[in-house]
Structures are given as structure tokens and as C-alpha cells.
Design a protein around this nucleic acid. Structure first.
Length: 511
RNA sequence: GCCAGAGUAGCUCAGUGGUAGAGCAGAGGACUCAUAAGCCUUUGGUCGCCGGUUCAAUCCCGGCCUCUGGCACCA
């Protein structure tokens, strides 16, 4: 059995979850569910990144201890996962003892090997913002912006990790492993970045400046800063198991270069730990055409949509709309279009009319089909083709196309029903028509049951509901569910089911 | 500036060296099992601009314009 270990980036515990967080979780979840369905042994990790200056500052602002502060935020992110039906097997927090232990051990190991050294860093420091400033932070006239307050040039000793030493090795590695980063053009960007010499990485902060972090094992006057803390979560969570190396780190495109594609491989290489097999960098969501940002206030709260339309409608939209790797736009109007025309009208209505006809013309029991005629054979052939294509597309993370094909099949099922018009057959007493009626009812139910199998990873709750109203309990082997058969014959279906109710008012009018 | 991607129907996008396609929206129709849903038909495009190669280019080449993204830390 193939092992598949997949991770999301861990979220920084300094603010509430927004659409981007939700997307990354859902995308990774769909991949994880798909792999499980394909028979892989899957481990799915997510979590929160809880140290650092911003957390320390936010906690102080609220007048609480950092630990209490991150406890709250971390809880919020775990709530998001639960609400979105994320099937993660583990949730790591960088404040977990299991994590801190591994971070300190790796740091010590690299220090002993001479991969970490101490040096002076000289730069302009803002006491108000408690950070070093870059030349790019200056205004055109050379002055420092107001927000930084007093800026002084200071010298500070810190520890550095020898990144530069491994630059050529990484370039060679990426050239030899063209599929390290998905999509491919992103890997080119990494190589592009590596054309210029890279500096060694400052990995510490003096404790008096930043206390909320993991102390360096070889110098307790410092804590480790950002990357050695955050990135190692992927490894620390599974150390001692057989899950490492990870199959995929799913991340946002913003943290690909340099963090995940440069720092992380080099850190692992230096520590003699195998590299993850691949990185998957996804795009960003804009909102109604403009960049989502806290300052403009157009942050989408994903759970509002989940609350109003159901979790699966949100999951469906995120996966249907985004071509993995590229950017997409989220607008309430577009959401409503997909919700109404695809989920409610196309799928939801198919479910409901199938139940209604089965009740009206067959006493609520799915009948046995007679011999399959051309329309039935055509639909079944389309099913085989659809299934094969969709599986292929999902293997390549083309979930949006997979859903499109699946819905093409659903539309074809609706068209099949029109062709047979069971409501007309139901009025006839001739044996031939009655046989055709039974066949058409059985066919539409079976088509629906098959289609649901391809929707499960994206809409787990809806899939369960549809199976439920068909009186059906799927078996444990997913691929069997994708085979056209007579699995529903004799099943007692529900009276009615409104899976995706039409919204009363447009979402845009909702306050 | 450099690198990458993109400019095709009102909108979102697919596409091939040989008279342009889908979904949604719009229009018309037949039907009635159904969430005023579904089905059928249909309006609609100088395929960014200018040259070139070719019997023939939206698709190949050159140039230009525009947009988006990346270029050291917001998923």
C-alpha cells in the first residue's frame, strides 16, 4: 500500500481565519480524501505557528500571556477545520513539547556540525516597531516613515545558518528533480531566484528583544526565529514514525520562495534528513476583483458562506472555481451562480426528481432494469468515460475540470430522463412501457449513485445525504462504487430531499 | 528592469495550420416527475495591434500594446 503524507502550511496564530486559510485546508483535504479513496495509506497534518514577535505584541495588547493568546487562536483554527469537514489526522502546534524538543535537537546538531555560526548584524532599528528596517522601507527622500518612530543604527550579535554553502547543491537538485514544485513554472521561479547569490540566514533573536520563542539549545540568551521553528513542524509531527518524508507540502505561492523551496530543503540537507517529495504552491483569492487585505476590509469570512449555504457548497465553489496553482476571484455573485445553476438546479433537482418519480411510479422501491436499450447504453458509456477522465484529472490536481466533467454527466442524466419521460410511460398500461419505465427509473438512480462517488472527496456531507436518500450504504472499497451495476435494486428511497435550497435573498444583500 | 503567464461571444474560459467552441447570462419552443427546476433550439466573436512565413494562421515567427503574477518572509 502506498503511503501518502500531506501537509498544509501551519497558520500564524495572529489573526482570525479568512478565505485563504479555508481554501488551503479544503484543497489539501480534497487531495487527502482522494488519495484515501484511491487506496493509499494517508496521513494529513495541519496546525498553527504560534511563536514570534507579532504574537508577543498582540498578546501584550490584549493584556494576556502569549500562551493564553495562542491557545485561543489555535482553537479558532481547529474550529475552522472541524466546521469545514477537514479530515486531518493530526494538528500540530509549534508550542507543543514534541515540536520544541525536535527543533532544539536539530539546531544543536547543526551547531555541532558547524552549520550555524555567530556574527554581528548591523542595521537600522525601529524601537517603536521593534524590528530592523530595510533600505526599501525608506521614503524617497531617505527619511524613515513616521510609523517607525525613532530609528537608530545598532549592532546586534546573532546566529546564522550557512545557506549559501548549499546553493549550488540546491540548483543541481532542482534541475535533477523537475517535479519538485507543482506547478512547474513555479519551479522555474525558484531557479530564477537562485541565480543570484543567497545570503546566510539569520535564525535567532536576542531574548531581551523577543522572549516568545524556542531558546537556542547552545545559547539560552537567544530564541530561534521563524523558519527553524515553523518549517520543522512537518518533520517534528511525525518523527519516530514511518511517515517522513512528506509526499506533498501544500502551501500558498507567497511562501514558496524562499522559505519552502530554498530554506527548507537546505535545512534538511544540512541535517541529513530526506527531503519532501514535492511542494504544491496554490494561488490566491481576490475578492470581487480586488486584493483581499485586512486594511481594505474586504476579507471574506468563509464561515459566513458555509453557514448560509452549507459547508459543501463552499467546498464545491472553492474547488470548482480555482485552477490549482493559479489565482481566482471570489465574488458573492459568482458563488450564487454556481450554487444555483450547478448545485441546486442540476444536481439537487436531479436527486429530488429521482426520488419523486421512484415514489410515484414504483412505490418508492428502485426497480430492476430490463434489457438496456441505446439511451441506457449511451449513458453508461458516458459514465465509463467520465469516470476514467475524472480520475486522471484528479491525479494531476485538476479538480476543477474533474468537477466540470462530473457535472456534464449529471446534465446528461437529466437529458436521459427527458428522453425517456417516465411520467408518460407511467400513464401507459402496456407491458412494454411498464418495463421501460422500470428501466428508466433504475437507470437514473444508478447514474446518480455513480456520480456521487466522484463528488465524495469534495462534498462528503452531500454525498452521504444522497446515498442516504437512495437507501444506500456504500461499501468500503471506493473503486467498486464507481462501477455501474444494479446496486440500488430494491432499495427504499426517501420521499423527498432538498439538498441545496434556493436562497431567499441574494447573498449580496445580506448584511 | 528581469522572469513567468495571459489577452477568443455580455461574463468565465477551452481550443486546433484549413471557413471558430463550452458553461452561465439573453431569446424562442415543446413538456410537467421536480427546488418557476430539467430538456431542445437559438442570438452573439475583424480569436489584442502591425508585419512576416505559408496555397491557407486565431493557432508558427518577429515587433508592439495592455493586463496579471513572482523577484527575501500576510494562505
Amino acid at each position: 500500500m502506498k503511503s501518502f503524507f500531506i501537509t498544509t502550511a501551519i497558520d500564524y496564530a495572529n489573526g482570525s481565519p479568512h478565505l485563504g486559510h479555508a481554501y488551503e485546508k479544503v484543497l489539501t483535504d480534497v487531495i487527502a480524501r482522494f488519495r484515501r479513496q484511491m487506496g493509499d495509506r494517508v496521513h494529513f497534518l495541519t496546525g498553527t505557528d504560534e511563536h514570534g514577535q507579532k504574537v508577543q505584541q498582540s498578546a501584550r495588547k490584549q493584556g494576556v500571556e502569549p500562551q493564553q493568546f495562542v491557545d485561543n487562536i489555535s482553537e479558532e483554527f481547529r474550529g475552522l477545520c472541524k466546521r469545514l469537514n477537514i479530515s486531518n489526522d493530526d494538528f500540530i502546534r509549534t508550542t507543543d513539547e514534541r515540536h520544541k524538543k525536535v527543533v532544539r535537537r536539530i539546531l544543536q546538531q547543526l551547531f555541532d556540525k558547524g552549520e550555524i555560526y555567530k556574527a554581528d548584524y548591523k542595521g537600522f532599528y525601529s524601537t517603536r516597531q521593534e524590528q530592523f528596517l530595510q533600505e526599501k522601507d525608506r521614503q524617497p527622500d531617505g527619511a524613515w516613515p513616521e510609523i517607525y518612530g525613532e530609528v537608530v543604527e545598532i549592532t546586534e550579535s546573532n546566529y546564522f545558518f550557512k545557506l549559501g554553502k548549499y546553493q549550488q547543491w540546491l540548483i543541481d537538485y532542482l534541475k535533477a528533480n523537475e517535479d519538485f514544485v507543482f506547478p512547474r513554472y513555479r519551479q522555474k521561479q525558484v531557479l530564477e531566484f537562485l541565480k543570484d547569490p543567497i545570503n546566510d540566514l539569520c535564525i535567532s533573536r536576542p531574548k531581551e528583544r523577543l522572549s516568545w520563542g524556542i531558546p537556542l539549545p547552545f545559547d539560552e540568551n537567544y530564541v530561534t526565529y521563524v523558519w527553524f521553528d515553523a518549517l520543522i513542524n512537518y518533520y517534528s509531527a511525525v518523527e519516530g514514525t514511518d511517515w517522513w518524508p512528506a509526499s506533498f507540502h501544500v502551501i500558498g505561492k507567497d511562501i514558496l520562495v524562499p522559505a519552502h523551496a530554498v530554506y527548507w530543503p537546505i535545512m534538511l540537507k544540512a541535517a541529513d534528513i530526506p527531503l519532501p517529495k514535492a511542494l504544491l504552491a496554490h494561488g490566491w483569492w481576490s475578492v470581487s476583483g480586488s486584493k483581499m487585505s485586512k486594511s481594505t476590509g474586504n476579507v471574506i469570512k468563509p464561515l459566513d458562506f458555509a453557514d448560509q449555504f452549507g459547508v459543501d457548497a463552499l467546498r464545491y465553489f472553492l474547488i470548482r472555481e480555482m485552477n490549482v496553482g493559479q489565482d481566482s476571484d471570489f465574488s458573492p455573485d459568482q458563488f450564487l451562480v454556481r450554487y444555483t445553476s450547478e448545485l441546486a438546479n442540476n444536481l439537487g433537482n436531479l436527486v429530488n426528481r429521482t426520488l419523486n418519480m421512484t415514489n410515484r411510479f414504483a412505490g418508492g422501491l428502485v426497480p430492476e432494469p430490463a434489457e438496456l436499450d441505446k439511451p441506457e447504453q449511451d449513458l453508461r458509456a458516458l459514465w465509463d468515460k467520465t469516470r476514467d477522465e475524472v480520475l486522471q484529472l484528479c491525479e494531476g490536481f485538476q479538480f476543477h475540470l474533474g468537477l466540470e466533467r462530473t457535472f456534464t454527466f449529471i446534465t446528461a442524466t437529466n437529458a436521459y430522463i427527458e428522453l425517456r419521460a417516465p411520467w408518460k410511460l407511467g400513464k401507459s398500461t402496456e407491458a412494454k412501457d411498464q418495463a421501460l419505465l422500470r428501466t428508466s427509473l433504475a437507470t437514473m438512480a444508478e447514474a446518480l449513485r455513480c456520480a456521487v462517488g466522484l463528488l465524495t472527496a469534495v462534498m462528503p456531507e452531500t454525498s452521504q445525504k444522497i446515498y442516504g436518500v437512495l437507501g444506500y450504504q456504500p461499501g468500503s472499497v471506493w473503486s467498486d462504487e464507481l462501477v455501474w451495476g444494479n446496486k440500488l435494486v430494491g432499495k427504499k428511497v426517501a420521499e423527498t430531499a432538498i439538498l441545496f435550497p434556493r436562497p431567499e435573498k441574494p447573498a449580496t444583500e445580506k448584511k
